[in-house]
Design a protein around this nucleic acid. Structure first.
Lengths: 345, 345
DNA sequence: CTGAAAGCGCTTACAG
DNA sequence: CTGAAAGCGCTTACAG
């Protein structure tokens, strides 16, 4: 009998299509009684409600918000901080009646979700402006909010106060009495050189801000740290090797750009019999759920990932209401001192 | 100048709308040269490509697959096993050119994503058949795959071999010499009674299968366990209280329906000075990433969550191709013996 | 290789 | 309170 549409029901009940449409979408436009008759006819005919795709086209809105993550969902979902962010965003969006669609980068399938998926707006998490998914979104002129990425004109930016957090972390080490300090960052091909020889031009905004904070505190104390960097977000092979090389002539303390990197440092140190914190202090960043659980528990800089997700959604909802696209002030951070830091021996 | 559509470009180039459509969607239908002219005009006019909502309506497919999780995304994303599943599904879908949309249960906003979001199919993870989102999906006659849920006619079912895994877990305790054993389950209002007094009718299929496995091994050994249950997926208050009550007269071993529940038992035991595994052996289920990290590391039943996600996507893609809706055989499980189990003292 | 026709299923003003 | 008209932006056969 073909597909059941508004028309099928309209004919069945003996009214026009738009009256049936009204029964579903604008209940106040018709009598209780007629509406009940229409709804029961729909039920009888197995009609589940107006087709969402048709409705999206007619209304010009889909109820869907996209999210593009740094890497593939497979990678992103391996990082508890990213997962926490997705969780917070999905929750806040749900409260506002929106659903979240995960936009992977274009793969071999030829599909580019950022270009081909119907949505009302998107949140871009920790992406370079040149990333293809991000570009596609902008070409569509979709409302976009940028999170921990490089600021772009007209795109609201959500981020924590990376510089302040990093400053506190470095300050903590200085106050403990450390002066031989290494800084471990990503997205920077530093390769174990003194910081004075390094240019930071390639770093992401987030990393650059953290560098600013660390360096300000170290500068104030007259300390020139060693920089250990990786050319990309390659937490694995390259980072491991360079951390290992750094430990050949170990500093007394390390500032890491993330808890995951800090854990890597702690593991490498353990392998070589270097004791944390007695011989090496380590400070992370993020307060990853793991940080409190490892041994020794990691000193780190906490960020409120739920607040970040809420702020991103709030900014996007404002954009959807066509309000001004203003970036809120950076979210606060807090140093959490646990047991991975101590005075140098 | 209004919105740029196929028509705008067609007029600009001097061809018909469908030729422009072909330039984007069926490149083999027109000359290289004409296509290049069209594409460059599109670029010039700031046209990002055919509108996805309109395309979805015309083509009858959206490129989006929905996922409904037991609870709100906020809750689901707190459980590493659920996160692992989402990760695996999102990854497999991306490989096939589909994007994943997270379908929350209807909230106060009046929006019911399972009913109102345009999609081509959905995966239902660990949901009761009566759950409203699940019902809405079925009313729409969307292709659906059910994961760790109660089997429904015509809906392919993906699950691990819960019974076999549970059997191995219970067998392990029996072989260690335990005979005073408690079983901790959810979705069952057991309230610390001997298993012989309990009816299992309210349990989910997953729990019921695990119960079958545990009971078979215990029956074979002539053991009647104590059942500790919670009325719902309420891992918190109720479970804590009942586990506490159980520990008033502790068994020598506990079989828990999940690693999270097992950790709860271990924590309660620690609070009361009951040593694991010396005084109490604990076996979990799932091999949650946490299981290997806690102390003592937890003996548990491992399931391959990536394989489960892949299997779910594979079954759904078959459905989308209108192939037969067959449930694959249950995925294998394996007992992982760590340090939370030992012979009774 | 190109285009005229019909259609996807709904909603939005607007008139009665 | 109800309905006729126009439109959302695209694609799918099909004819030339």
């Amino acid at each position: 009998m073909g597909r059941v549409t508004l028309k099928t029901i309209a004919e069945h009940v003996g009214v026009s299509r738009m009256t049936v449409s009204n029964a579903f979408s604008r209940p106040d436009q018709l009598s209780e009684d007629l509406r009940a008759r229409i709804l029961s006819a729909a039920d009888e005919l197995g009609y589940a409600g107006p087709d969402p795709a048709a409705r999206a086209l007619a209304r010009g809105r889909t109820g869907v918000i996209g999210m593009v993550l740094t890497n593939s969902p497979r990678d992103a979902f391996t990082d508890d901080v990213a997962v926490g962010f997705v969780r917070a965003v999905a929750g806040s969006l749900a409260d506002a009646g929106y659903s979240l669609v995960l936009l992977h980068s274009s793969g071999e399938s030829g599909v580019v979700p950022a270009r081909d998926i119907a949505m009302d707006g998107a949140i871009v998490y920790s992406c370079a402006p040149a990333m293809s998914a991000y570009t596609a979104l902008r070409e569509r002129r979709l409302p976009i909010v940028n999170v921990e990425g490089s600021p772009l004109p007209g795109v609201p930016d959500i981020s924590i106060d990376n510089a302040a957090g990093a400053y506190q972390a470095a300050r903590h080490l200085v106050e403990l009495g450390h002066s031989r300090i290494a800084v471990v960052v990503d997205a920077l091909d530093a390769d174990n050189r003194p910081s004075s020889e390094i240019s930071l031009e390639t770093a992401s905004t987030t990393i650059a801000a953290r560098m600013d904070g660390w360096m300000r505190a170290l500068d104030e104390a007259g300390i020139v740290p060693t920089l250990v960097g990786t050319p990309a977000l390659d937490i694995d092979a390259v980072l491991r090797e360079r951390v290992d090389r750094m430990l050949d002539d170990p500093p007394t303390a390390v500032l890491a750009f993330s808890d995951l990197a800090a854990l890597e440092v702690m593991e490498r140190a353990r392998d070589r019999g270097i004791r944390v914190p007695e011989q090496l202090s380590v400070v992370g960043f993020d307060d990853n759920p793991l940080a409190a659980r490892v041994s020794p528990p990691l000193t780190t800089v906490r960020q409120d990932i739920d607040a970040k997700g809420e702020a991103a959604v709030k900014a996007l909802l404002a954009l959807l209401r066509e309000e001004d696209a203003e970036s809120p002030p950076p979210l606060p951070t807090a140093l959490v001192v646990r047991s991975s830091t101590a005075p140098p021996s």
